[in-house]
């Protein structure tokens, strides 16, 4: 049985990198006595795959991984058991059963939602309401990305699906995943560029609100929607 687990990562856990979060959950499965399936071979490993790595420094309410279990009672029971062995900052918020043949979490990722705030003491006086309005009006928002092979230019307009400013925070839903990966800092950099400002490495406090896949009709839906409550 394939399950999709949703969790949040807040507080001090923002300093724990993606690989360590994976190791953390492997150990958590043992502590919680989850009947997780293992690969065969001499050193069997848990069958578990994560959706989209979260950079160090970011918090999130919308992290996902899939796992294969031999047996599980109700989602509620499993959630309670896992949450009893979590470190402060990580909470399992939802568990769904995936239908046969469902795409795995990583392949399903299409977009992610973020809330970006300017870190206290790092303000540069950018009028965000106005900047967001300009972004909406412009036909293109070219961004030059440094890659190993050199530079590539991408148009942020194609990958930014929502962008708004409210209560001192920029909220956005942007393309994530292998086909077009946009980082929230890239969008902020674009907004800054309208005023000739440059962003620094620690200017923003970024929170991921949700990770989305696409429904059959093309709409963005939270990754958990692919599974059913059990």
């Amino acid at each position: 049985m394939k399950l999709r687990v949703k969790f949040s990562k807040n507080g001090c856990m923002k300093f724990i990198g993606h690989l360590d979060v994976m190791r953390y959950f492997q150990k958590a499965m043992r502590r919680a006595h989850v009947d997780i399936a293992y690969s065969t071979g001499f050193s069997p490993h848990q069958i578990m795959s994560f959706a989209s790595p979260l950079s160090i420094g970011l918090t999130s309410d919308g992290e996902y991984f899939d796992m294969e279990v031999n047996a599980a009672e109700s989602a509620e029971e499993l959630k309670t058991r896992l949450n009893a062995v979590m470190a402060e900052g990580i909470v399992v918020t939802d568990i769904r059963r995936l239908p046969e043949g469902a795409k795995n979490a990583m392949a399903s990722v299409a977009a992610a939602g973020y809330i970006v705030r300017v870190r206290e003491g790092f303000e540069q006086g950018v009028p965000f309401a106005e900047a967001v309005e300009r972004f909406q009006k412009e036909a293109h928002a070219y961004y030059v990305k440094q890659t190993k092979k050199g530079e590539t230019t991408l148009d942020l307009k194609e990958g930014v699906h929502t962008l708004s400013f409210d209560q001192n925070a920029v909220t956005m839903m942007i393309d994530t995943g292998s086909s077009r990966n946009i980082k929230p800092e890239m969008v902020m950099e674009c907004l800054y560029s309208y005023y000739g400002k440059q962003r620094g490495d620690f200017d923003f406090v970024i929170h991921r609100t949700e990770t989305y896949g696409r429904a059959d009709n093309g709409a963005f839906v939270p990754l958990s929607e692919a599974g059913e409550v059990f």
């Binding site: 507080g11 001090c12 062995v85 402060e88 870190r119 490495d201």
Partner: peptide
């Protein structure tokens, strides 16, 4: 939540910030 002794911008620039934050299981 615990308040950390090192500010975030320091923790994000040094190697392996998990060395300094505590909060481990057990």
């Amino acid at each position: 939540m615990r308040t950390l002794a090192l500010p975030e911008e320091i923790l994000l620039t040094i190697e392996k910030p998990a060395r300094y934050i505590g909060g481990e299981v057990n």
